[in-house]
Design a protein around this nucleic acid. Structure first.
Lengths: 187, 187
DNA sequence: TCGACTGATGTCAGTTGCTGTCATCACAGT
DNA sequence: ACTGTGATGACAGCAACTGACATCAGTCGA
């Protein structure tokens, strides 16, 4: 056995989710999180850049999935459809942990600082998607627009997925992209 | 003459812009801003909720312009076109202070916390636009999509306006909405 | 086997953003 | 002259975050 209990980072995430859920983000101190995880405040900040980041650890995997999905789309696929396919894949992934997503989102929407952090994470997704599209030869402007529009669709569909009882998130994504196309066409 | 110099809020904004520009956002303390404005730190926080907000004061006017523009569009106008018209009006407004916009944006892009704050302000615009569209009888989903897609176009066009030397921001907005339509159509 | 090294953690002091509370005092209205 | 009122100052205090140094189980090469 090691000198310390294993998976310190995971314990911190777990403790933070619990405490943020129980008494809210602002009413929780970092010292309390660390304490519940059997660690010190200083150690918390060695694992996470700040008090918010603990809720967003793991977002990198989703970003990689989005990028690789765009890269794997057939060459003839239009940029917006490549982006749509990427978000369908992401939706399938999220769907496997719906309850976790729901709890996490409830915490985030209850606090402005956390919403800010979520928005910049989504912006990072948009930036990564833009790069992935450029690699396919898509022009800068079209790549940015497809990526940002995709994020817009995802944001809306995600909220809808959690709000309604609809189980099939990927299908909801498909329908939402279709609706974007209708809206953009001036319908 | 009053007991205090007038326009304390304006002096704080001015001092903050100067200091953030000179030595960066993080390297500037609130005490320094207040000091340059001839006030105390405590007074700074009576005028602004936090150290970031001082850069975003006045955003409410732009939001009102967006909302009223959507409200004034002809009834037959499609949601996406009402949104486009609103951003054209906003662009015309911003164009009158291009140099100020440029300096402010340079400060914001240089710091992640400030980018977060900007994103949540834009999200607030999206929410207001969504409400304005619903008032016109647009369905929830279409309203959200048109608003969020509009924000996406604006974000991209704004950066482009400042990056290129292009003087006509409203026209750039029009072209960008046209390109969104092309992208959404799968071109 | 031993000693040097590593890496995750603890300890502690310090800065800064931000808040609550109370005092001050020119000005306005009566 | 009397009494608010509102913007400000003064001060104490909490919590987020950082830098510097200590600790010590495990590891690895001599």
């Amino acid at each position: 056995m090691g000198r310390w209990e294993p998976n310190a980072r995971g314990r911190l995430v777990q403790a933070a989710m619990e405490l943020y859920g129980e008494r809210g983000y602002e009413q929780t101190t970092v010292a309390e999180i660390a304490n519940r995880a059997g660690l010190t405040e200083r150690t918390f900040f060695r694992h996470f850049a700040d008090k918010r980041e603990v809720l967003f650890w793991g977002g990198g995997a989703l970003q990689e999935l989005l990028v690789s999905s765009v890269g794997e789309a057939p060459e003839s696929t239009a940029p917006i459809d490549a982006v749509a396919a990427a978000f369908e894949a992401a939706a399938a992934q999220l769907q496997e942990r719906r309850e976790h997503s729901r709890q996490r989102q409830a915490i985030i929407v209850a606090n402005a600082e956390l919403r800010e952090r979520e928005l910049i994470k989504l912006e990072s997704f948009a930036s990564a998607l833009t790069d992935a599209l450029r690699l396919r030869g898509v022009a800068d402007m079209a790549a940015s627009l497809a990526a940002e529009a995709g994020i817009a669709v995802f944001k809306i569909a995600f909220v809808r997925w959690l709000a309604t009882g609809q189980p099939d998130f990927p299908q909801l994504i498909r329908e939402s992209f279709d609706e974007l196309k209708a809206v953009a066409a001036g319908k």
